[in-house]
Design a protein around this nucleic acid. Structure first.
Ligand SMILES: NC(=O)c1ccc[n+]([C@@H]2O[C@H](COP(=O)([O-])OP(=O)(O)OC[C@H]3O[C@@H](n4cnc5c(N)ncnc54)[C@H](O)[C@@H]3O)[C@@H](O)[C@H]2O)c1
Ligand SMILES: NC(=O)c1ccc[n+]([C@@H]2O[C@H](COP(=O)([O-])OP(=O)(O)OC[C@H]3O[C@@H](n4cnc5c(N)ncnc54)[C@H](O)[C@@H]3O)[C@@H](O)[C@H]2O)c1
Lengths: 251, 251
DNA sequence: AGGAGCTTGTGAACGTGAGAACAAAATCGA
DNA sequence: TCGATTTTGTTCTCACGTTCACAAGCTCCT
């Protein structure tokens, strides 16, 4: 039950040297837009061009880029290749990060088969699963290995990023093992809140939550005034039939 | 090229009746926490209990819940079942939402095989793909159908949510077809910025971006002072070898 | 009946993020 | 060389989100 983040008073959500978290989250989008422009043979782009390609406001883009330094030329724009390199360096994808994936079920298979990671600064060094029937299975040029090897692999290959695609039940235990072995960044697909010590970063991807957010807005669009005006406290009983709606720990 | 959102001055990111967007994004987490408590046989929970289960600050949780109404009891806490129903109703998962998945490759297969949606307010009504070899394939109790049927299916089954798991290339076209057919919410897995008319909601799930955000923080942890102090404008040439790092359109 | 002890709901303070607007800097053409 | 034009980098302002802190309100015990 260690809290995910230390709680100093007035916690700075921006990093030490000072790039706001919101900006960090957009840098990869800019990187992708720059790569697309570069592939299209475009050598220079204005903030307006870039902003359009990245789907953001140009003022925001300029401010974001200004945190990295002054890489543009007034009256001209940004050199696509140069800016691309600067962003890649700032994010850290000029180097290679070793990644393990734990839980090679439906989702783990999809990730393992995905070719888009290797070419982008991430190298999958192992696929781990607890199911003896899966261990040994070949996926692309990788073989599924036993979860017992986790600690060895993390240490040998200096793995810093772990991806959890197990069911929710074992996710915390897997997480703990990863952290203990030395992993300091985790991408979690299991629908649970994971606890990690300070210093370990967690990000989650949760499809159910995304769909529920869409459903909320969808209801607003169609329903609007059609909402029942809130049944006022039916004495805790007789709630309209609520099937197995909502979160839960899931298969 | 229609912008994703209309731009009135001082755009209210909160919805009409007034639930802030940040709160909406957390409601599904609370819902899941409540379901877990409920499954654990717990009938009443304080904001502190709930906050711990949901991984947030208890003051934030209370403020979030206060947007829905006063569903707690001072000195006691919240009735788990009752609150769960209220949140489910607010989000809109007490009703069923019809969903189509377009692009039944690695990821589409994983989603189609995932049992966690049906029980949570979402009903997958069709799996669509353009590949003739895939069309007709049986996945669970569903069959992959031809993308040509998209319009019919959306209209017949009143589909409001579309999930795009095609490669980046065809994603915009698929998106346009979905929107034209009547879909007003889209969950996009392809690594592109999609343009949709006002009134259509888009959410994206982007694994590369998540990993890059982790990499940024990871670099901060290990590198810190090890960063080269920014090569100052090498006259646009002689950039250190940058392989095929970064975005791009991918597979 | 009344007070002690909890816990909610919310007002107020603070920090972060978004966008408009503009001065500073660069190019280009005359 | 100079002015017109373009576009960046930054400042300023406002809106949004988070957290603290506490009064209001509920239950239970005496
Ligand atoms: N598949 C989807 O589309 C989808 C959608 C949303 C969420 N999720 C979530 O993603 C996760 C994975 O989903 P999935 O469909 O791939 O599930 P899955 O059941 O197909 O795969 C889970 C895998 O994890 C392995 N595993 C179980 N315990 C383990 C342990 N202790 N150590 C190592 N491996 C272990 C299992 O052997 C299995 O291969 C689940 O938490 C699920 O809720 C999946
Ligand atoms: N698989 C992953 O782990 C992963 C990770 C990150 C991002 N993504 C992204 O998710 C998307 C899907 O990835 P994937 O690995 O499943 O790819 P995939 O190539 O395995 O599957 C894509 C599917 O879309 C179908 N398709 C192509 N054009 C279509 C069209 N016009 N209409 C309908 N269907 C069409 C193809 O026939 C194929 O079955 C890609 O955009 C990918 O970049 C995937």
């Amino acid at each position: 039950m260690t809290p995910a983040r230390s709680r100093r008073p007035s916690a700075p959500t921006r990093t030490e040297r000072g790039i706001p978290e919101a900006t960090v989250a957009r840098l990869p989008v800019y990187l992708r837009a720059l790569t697309a422009l570069s592939d299209g043979g475009i050598a220079t782009a204005s903030s307006e061009d870039l902003a359009t390609a990245a789907g953001v406001n140009s003022a925001k883009l300029r401010k974001d880029l200004s945190y990295l330094g002054s890489y543009g030329t007034r009256g001209v724009g940004y050199d696509v290749e140069y800016l691309r390199y600067q962003i890649a360096r700032e994010i850290g994808v000029t180097q290679d990060w070793a990644v393990v994936i734990v839980g090679i079920g439906n989702l783990g298979h999809a990730l393992a088969n995905y070719s888009g990671f290797g070419t982008r600064g991430f190298r999958i060094v192992a696929l781990l699963d607890a199911d003896p029937d899966l261990v040994g299975e070949q996926i692309g040029d990788m073989e599924v290995r036993d979860i017992a090897e986790l600690e060895d692999i993390v240490k040998t290959d200096r793995v810093s990023i772990g991806v959890i695609t197990t069911p929710a039940g074992p996710a915390q235990e897997v997480c703990d093992r990863l952290v203990t072995a030395g992993v300091t960044s985790i991408l979690n697909f299991a629908p649970v809140v994971l606890s990690v010590p300070a210093g370990v970063d967690i990000r989650k991807v949760d499809l159910s939550i995304e769909l529920q957010i869409l459903a909320y807005h969808e209801q607003r669009k169609s329903g609007e005034a059609a909402l029942p005006p809130v049944p006022e406290l039916p004495t805790m009983n007789g709630l309209p039939d609520l099937p197995s709606v909502g979160g839960g720990v899931g298969a």
